[in-house]
Design a protein around this nucleic acid. Structure first.
Lengths: 349, 349
DNA sequence: GTGAAAGCGCTAACAC
DNA sequence: GTGTTAGCGCTTTCAC
């Protein structure tokens, strides 16, 4: 006689249900999956017993048996970043609507972690992996990482929000060029010519693309490009926005508008601007990217770029499902939208 | 002859490894788990083959076999809230260090979802569930939910950050009273007597506790309690902070300091204060809770309460492991710390 | 429509 | 030390 030391009350199984319903486990399984017709009488009896015990079929046994875990792994750089959090929740909802579960991992932007987590997800036998942020954002893909992903892709498809040169990853990408175009057209239409671009890092694909479009739009309006208005040698957080904006002022530059690389960086940029005695938007207009809740917390509220996160998440999950089934197109594009708020205004004469 | 329609390159199994190494699967399993000694020669041979194929043992098969998924489910209200995001990442790291994986779900604070997700986690056979936010935060526990949790607890232990009257959930709770005491002592020492409390909802346990301590501290310093300085009939976001602070001004009240229920609400409170023509902290001091990155993005930076998230996460995971093993204490308390920044200053005379 | 039985990939006695 | 073998809990042919 031994006391139960834990609360492991014997999990009830399909056998228990079958026995009590006086049917075979196969029949119970059938009503569980709904794949095959079962006599109405038996079905209802089984259903009743299942409900009575609140029986939930063991997902591991199920997955083992049909070799389908019904799980999609999601590898992000850091959910504490609101952009990733928004996107993750969107994916979670989209996955739910197609009967999938989502398994989140944070790499904290450390490549070694990314590789490790790829393995962990593989071990969990997730059916597909969606990677958002980290190595898949690099302008020039890291060869070692590409190799790792290719090895994983041998058995599990991976979908990325950036690109991974040398792999067959499906991509769901924001049209960064378009996003910058929207912002620039907006600012230029307000009369701005001295426009700074601050935050992030040029080694990141989307940032590189933004810079390209920045130059392109300037050119379109015959506005001279001034390299000293560009400050992209940092990161994507508030501190970096602050430091990089300070650098611009330190060079003696006085832009009338600033494009921050994202909402978080924008808060740092704002701090720098205010510390230098300027007002937003009266003296300097400020705009950002991502339309996270941060942009609504700022005072004044930030003009920014929105992506329709639910749709973005839907695309990602669809791409994953397509990849699992070995079909669908290689790349899908998310269209950015301009959200005008109070942080941007007419340029001072 | 059939073309492989997906990239399901046959997953390699322990059998393949065993065969190539000319040993039994048991021996391969032994080197995998490390539970039993294996001859050096064979072990190295096996290891080499495992590495060669980048073999990862199927977690589902493993879990099925030893009935241990090595997964802890984490049910939060919404990871897009930085408090939950911080805590989740802390849990993820803590879990990793003890060999567990973490499975995140968002209930979006909808009870029906919470119940559903509890079932989903049960189905996944997670070994324990940690619930942060949602029904476990209620001042008076919802009976239906308590019943659901008790049903789940029949097989899976659940740990909560709040309380669930009528269940045996282990608890890891912030000392909310202490947190409010720190804030009040801080403000009173700066000469504030007219202190408002804004945001959140009194139906939430921690908020209720904060109010208790608020009154208590006032009493201690013989400062009269003015009900009109309290505005707790809302939510925990920026908009709510804004609305509720407006309400206070609308009543003709002019506090010299405001305690916002959390950092997010504080941003809304700040907006209201500024719109009413006051400065922070010169005219009105503002403090919050949670020390999320939002508090550092605010201008001026927010004086707030920190919890040492890594430790908080560690407690949570420890409690979960203890619960799995049927040991450990029922409740653990997280000690809050005051973080003074520029949003709080001396009261105007 | 329904049952018997063979796995799915691994772990853990139990022998030797 | 190492192999044999019996499951873990489900799904899915394959017969009937």
């Amino acid at each position: 006689m031994q006391m139960p030391k834990t609360n492991e009350n014997k999990m009830i199984t399909i056998y228990d249900i079958a026995k009590e319903a006086q049917v075979s486990t196969a029949t119970v399984s059938r009503v569980l999956t709904g794949n095959t017709k079962v006599g109405k009488e038996k079905r209802e009896k089984i259903l009743a017993i299942i409900k009575k015990y609140n029986f939930k079929p063991n997902a591991m046994a199920r997955g083992l048996s049909d070799t389908k875990s019904k799980i999609i792994g999601i590898l992000v750089a850091d959910v504490r970043n609101p952009f990733y959090a928004d996107l993750f929740v969107a994916c979670e909802q989209a996955a739910k609507s197609v009967g999938y579960t989502v398994l989140l991992c944070n790499s904290l932007d450390v490549m070694q972690q990314e590789e490790h987590l790829l393995d962990r997800l593989a071990q969990q036998r997730v059916e597909a992996i969606i990677q958002i942020g980290g190595r898949v954002d690099d302008l020039v893909s890291n060869m070692e990482y590409v190799e790792k992903v290719n090895q994983i892709m041998n058995t599990i498809p991976v979908v990325v929000t950036g690109k991974l040169e040398g792999t067959k990853c499906k991509m769901v990408r924001i049209d960064s060029m378009k996003a910058m175009e929207l912002l620039m057209e907006h600012l230029i239409s307000l009369g701005h010519h001295q426009i700074a671009m601050v935050g992030g890092n040029i080694k990141v694909l989307s940032t590189y693309e933004k810079l390209l479009q920045y130059k392109h739009t300037l050119n379109k309006y015959h506005i001279p490009y001034d390299e000293e208005l560009i400050s992209l040698e940092g990161s994507y957080n508030s501190e970096s926005g602050y430091t990089l904006m300070n650098d611009i002022f330190a060079k003696g530059k006085h832009p009338t508008a600033v494009v921050a690389i994202n909402d978080c960086a924008a808060t740092g940029v704002q701090r720098s601007i205010l510390e230098h005695g300027y007002r937003i938007p009266e003296d300097i207009s400020l705009v950002g990217y991502d339309n996270t809740y941060v942009s609504q917390m700022m005072i004044p509220r930030l003009t920014t770029i929105d992506y329709d996160y639910p749709l973005f998440g839907k695309y990602l999950i669809e791409a994953a499902i397509d990849a699992i089934e070995g079909k669908g197109e290689m790349m899908k594009t998310v269209t950015p939208h301009l959200v005008v708020r109070e942080s941007s205004g007419k340029a001072k004469q």
